[in-house]
Simulated scan of single mutants.
Amino acid sequence: MSAGLPVHWLSLGGTIQARGHDPLDADRYWKTGRSLTPEEVLAPVRALLGPVRVEAVDARPSHDLTSDDLLALVARLRALDPADVAGAVVSLGSNGLEEVAFLIWLLGAPVPVAVTASMRPPTAIGSDALPNLVDAVAVARSGGAREHGVVVVSDGAVLHPAEATKSHSSRVDSFRASATALGELRSGVPHWSRPAAPAPLRDHPLPAALAPVEIVTSYVGADGAAVRSATERGVRAIVSAGTGAGFPTGGERQALEDAAAAGVVVCQAQRTPYGRVAPTSAPLLGAGGLSPQKARLLLAVALADGRTPGAPELQRLLDASRPGTAGTA
């Protein structure tokens, strides 16, 4: 049982630890170059949370994390012992949260993991930093989290990593507004409303490196040059972020078909925030409701270390990685 065990907090920096110019600074704080330590952020509520064990990871902007950084983070989480910790919290900058949380969910960990961030620094009036951290600790310690495995916690909501996206550059409900909640926190207690959905690659061997996968975003007039460039660079897969329900231009379509003929895995996604990709036909895979960024990560794991799963297996993984439809169609 996890009662009495500490929650292990892996702190990667970001806005949740940033120190602003003054209490009214909700959007210029990154210019100070200063931050609070994890202990300073936690201090006002530490006595109320139960045992929390802090591990500060090399802090940097989350959008500067490398593939090696992400795999090292998953390895660190996989090394946690359920007999030693009740669960884990990962905090980082909001820019990289959706991709980092999705990769952790894909590969899994032996303890529940709550991933969180904040949209305002803890030094600002009305900051969501401390509430999100407190909620994440409560979720990581809860029994429901053990069923869900890995979740995103933000603005009082528990969200699925396959669905949560940063939908606004500064609003505190940026993540909550992007997806239908798995549950909510009321007075610090998680209340779950949706069933758990297992990750299709949970307990998959941790790859030595992610396979090179490129995202090509469509725009009116695109001639396919970006697709051809990616193919020439030797990528293992290309994710096409098409218009609307996933429609590339005519020039892109031909280039994508040529790439597939050359042995590159091609997945059709959409640049549209919500909804699903229109049905595709061989040799193109369909991302379903996954964002281009998340489809890229799935393929980068599935194709890592020289693996060559066939199109049916890759399509099954893509289909199994989106448990529901986020937001509104």
Rank of each mutant, 00 (worst) to 15 (best):
L106A: 07
L130T: 11
R120L: 14
D128K: 08
P110D: 12
R120Y: 07
I125V: 15
S127Y: 08
G126T: 01
P122F: 09
L103V: 13
V100P: 01
A114W: 07
T123M: 04
V111Y: 13
T123F: 06
F102M: 06
I104H: 04
P122C: 01
P121Q: 02
T123K: 00
V113M: 11
A117N: 03
P110G: 13
V115T: 13
V100N: 01
A117L: 04
L106D: 02
V113F: 06
R120D: 04
P110Q: 15
A101T: 14
M119P: 13
R120G: 01
P110E: 14
W105M: 07
G108C: 14
P110A: 11
M119R: 10
T123D: 04
L130M: 04
A101M: 11
I125L: 15
A109S: 15
I125F: 13
L130Y: 04
W105T: 03
F102C: 02
A101Q: 10
D128Y: 10
V100H: 02
A101L: 09
P112F: 14
W105K: 07
V100Y: 04
V100A: 14
M119H: 06
A129L: 10
L107R: 02
D128I: 08
V111T: 12
M119C: 05
S118R: 09
V111S: 08
A117S: 15
G108M: 11
L106C: 13
F102Q: 00
W105H: 15
P110F: 06
P121L: 09
M119E: 03
V115A: 15
